[in-house]
Design a protein around this nucleic acid. Structure first.
Lengths: 154, 154
DNA sequence: TAGAACGCTCGAGTGCACTCGAAGCAAGCG
DNA sequence: CGCTTGCTTCGAGTGCACTCGAGCGTTCTA
């Protein structure tokens, strides 16, 4: 009951853009990924990954004996979660807040839910807005297409 | 046939946010609006309106004898159009390009249509993306709501 | 006609989300 | 052993879309 802080969005829909070739584990250990591997897997740059940790978006990544980051499966899942939140347009500051709540444990479930519900409303509003622009766009496209037909035919 | 460069999106869905009280015409002339009036009508700041003109987003606003801007109905329609394009998420640079094409006249209908079609695709993609995040969001919200019910009941 | 309110230009500043570079240490291969 | 590759920290730079301020002229209202 303590490991499910991330809400199990197990879908490995990790965005493989910028990945070149198969990712082979660098430092043996089961699910221990070097930063470059995680960069390849997530599409985020190594710089960005370090920055995420620095600002408190990552819980605190394990280090190798030499001090290098070793990301675990758990970290990858969390990054996938962050990716989804980022897609909603959620500002980094809110994601940081959310990450903080996750670190604090189960007593923050309510606030986490509130954040997600607010986000849901914003996403719905944005979708409606975009739907509205679609109508305008299509009207205009039809206008230009019509103008083209008119100047060609007859 | 020369006045319809804007494509007549006549819907006066001008966003009246930030408008305080009724807008009374400042400098008499039929549909001649001062910058503050246009700001109130569109929700854009006077600074932003000047900046839009400066970067070539506005065709070139008329001036009073003293050099103050006097926006016409045509300008308002164009601003409404820009507002819609902005809602699509279109970058300013593309809007500037579009404005330039509008100034160049009817021979640019094709490129205008292309821009709008590209935009339409992007909007559709963005909507799909947001729909995807909605699913995740709802799953997580349900999880937290469920956890709350579990800790309260039984 | 005084004075507040408004508008002008030009250039600098802001906030966001990265993105990059420099200097230096560490790992691992031939 | 030397070399490439990759990692570290820190701080500065980028691109976008505004946003603001200074300093000065104009216009409206009492």
């Amino acid at each position: 009951m303590t490991a499910i802080d991330t809400t199990p969005v197990k879908s490995p829909d990790v965005d493989r853009s910028a990945s070149a070739g198969p990712v082979r584990p660098r430092s043996g250990g089961r699910g221990r990924y070097a930063i470059s591997e995680v960069a390849a897997l997530t599409g985020l740059s190594a710089h960005t990954l370090r920055w995420y940790e620095q600002i408190g978006l990552m819980p605190e990544v394990e280090r190798s004996h030499a001090g290098q980051r070793r990301f675990g499966e758990h970290d990858l899942e969390w990054l996938a979660c962050l990716g989804k939140l980022r897609l909603t347009g959620m500002p980094i500051a809110v994601m940081v807040r959310f990450a903080e709540l996750v670190r604090r444990g189960e007593e923050t479930f309510d606030e986490r839910r509130e954040i997600l519900e607010r986000t849901r409303h914003e996403v719905l509003a944005r979708i409606a807005e975009l739907q509205g622009t679609l109508d305008v766009l299509e009207t205009k496209i039809d206008f230009y297409a019509g103008a083209r037909r008119a100047s060609e035919g007859a």
